[in-house]
Structures are given as C-alpha cells and as structure tokens.
Amino acid sequence: MTRHKQWIAVTLLIASAVFALRLSLVQPALPTVSDQLWAVYFGSGTDSYLVPELRFGMPTINSRLQALVTGPRLKGLKPVFPPGTRVISYQIEGNLILVNFNKALMENHPGGSASELVTVYGLVNTLTEDPSLDYVQILIEGRRVDTIAGHVDVSLPLRRDESSIGAR
C-alpha cells in the first residue's frame, strides 16, 4: 500500500471543488466543496498498532498536530499522547519538521515499548502524510532527548514507519 494513494488520494475532490468554483460563476447559488480526506493515526484497541482515522477538511500542519493532541473521535481507538501533552511550536527545514512539545509528553508517558512506539509513530506517520515531509524530530522544550520512555531512540530525525500501521 503506498502512502499517499491509499489515504489521501481524494485530491480529486479538490479538482471537483475547482470545477464547482468554475460552475459557480455561472450559477452563483452553488456552494463549493474544498474538503480533503486526510488521516491521523491513533492506537488500535489491544494490539498496539496504528490505525488511521479519516478526517475531512483542509489539513494543515497545525490541524494534524491538534488532531493528535485532541485524540481519536472513533470509539475503540486510543490516543497516542499522554494527558497534558501540548505542542509548543514547530519548525520546518526542507523535508524535516521539528516539533517542540511540553514536558508532559515525557513526564506523563505511561511507558512500555508498546505505548512508546504508538506515541512516536502516531506522530511521525500523521505528519508525514503531508507529502512535503519525510522526517520528524521530536523536541521537549527545545531539547533533543534520547528517548521518551526508555526504548525508542528519538535523538535523531525519524522516518515514517509503515510496519506500525494496521492489524497484524
């Protein structure tokens, strides 16, 4: 399954929106549709894998981050960030995004490699849905930390991990 085809390929919707806009010149009463389908990754029920939850709208970096912070809407999915987690800021350098979190991401993290992997790759996979981003660097109050909960090495930028997605 290729990354952008499966989940956000409904860019065609945008095309239809453009089409609708053009139509609306003729028939001014027509509304426009500019929603895209985009994915945010949350933890699955018990097997600790990532499951995409689909959203409609215009995905921005901020809306992707906010969706992660707010948590899943579908029942049965698990949040990927511990309570109290806030995003302070982000910075984009080419295909790398640095995301600066408050300390709660680390301090409130429940631990265990299963939940740590879901935290890390819920973030990385959700952000790399954006076609311009390939790498994610986690910062905690500006600091490059070695790890969030003692297992996954997050000292360097992380790549998308397809193997974390879906049921096994």
Binding site: M1, K5, Q6, W7, I8, A9, V10, L12, L13, S16, A17, F19, A20, L23, L30, P31, T32, V33, D35, L37, L54, F56
Partner: peptide, 27 residues
Amino acid sequence: GLILVFVLSAVLTALLVPSMEVEASFR
C-alpha cells in the same frame, strides 16, 4: 459509510451534474 456517502453527496449536491465521477480511495 461516511466517506463514500460524503464524497458522493458532496459532489452530487455541490455540482448538480448528473453523473459526476470521483475516483474512490479505499481498499
């Protein structure tokens, strides 16, 4: 049914073109 329904009804109601086509994205 949300995605398809949405895709459809949005396109349908938005465009009022009898057979507007959208490529679906699902497994």
